[in-house]
């Protein structure tokens, strides 16, 4: 079964989202490397996202494309990246999600991916 892990954290917080030029950045990256090694081929996909200041929300109304600067919703913690994991059960997915570094600094939402096959 596939699970999406949506990683939320406060992108303005220098502790959880330090600038790459700062010394705090290294340990977080190392955490993600370790997670990658540990989860191994259970990771089907995964990407970080640029921050929400780069987001564009798109809607089509009456056939017209309407674009808005910014994310869909203003929230305290923002979607900053995701993984698609292959796990047998929700318990396994929760165990793995808990090892994503930002689970300790923000929130990881685990959502099952439907199987239409």
């Amino acid at each position: 079964m596939k699970y999406a892990c949506l990683i939320y954290s406060n992108e303005k917080d220098p502790v959880s989202n330090p600038d790459p030029s700062t010394p705090e950045f290294g340990p977080i990256m190392e955490g993600y490397m370790r997670f990658g090694q540990e989860a191994g081929d259970k990771i089907l996909a995964g990407e970080p996202l640029q921050d929400t200041s780069t987001a564009t929300s798109v809607q089509v109304r009456d056939g017209e494309i309407i674009t808005t600067d910014g994310p869909f919703a203003e929230t305290k913690e923002q979607l900053g990246g995701f993984y698609i994991l292959e796990c047998d059960t929700l318990d396994d997915a929760i165990q793995l999600a808990a090892k994503i570094p930002h689970a300790s600094m923000g929130t990881v939402e685990v959502r099952p991916v439907p199987d239409f096959g």
């Binding site: 079964m1 047998d88 059960t89 929700l90 318990d91 685990v110 099952p112 439907p114």
Partner: peptide, 10 residues
């Protein structure tokens, strides 16, 4: 059912 919550003894 949809999230495959297992019924097992932890």
């Amino acid at each position: 059912a949809n999230a495959t919550i297992p019924f097992r003894i932890p």
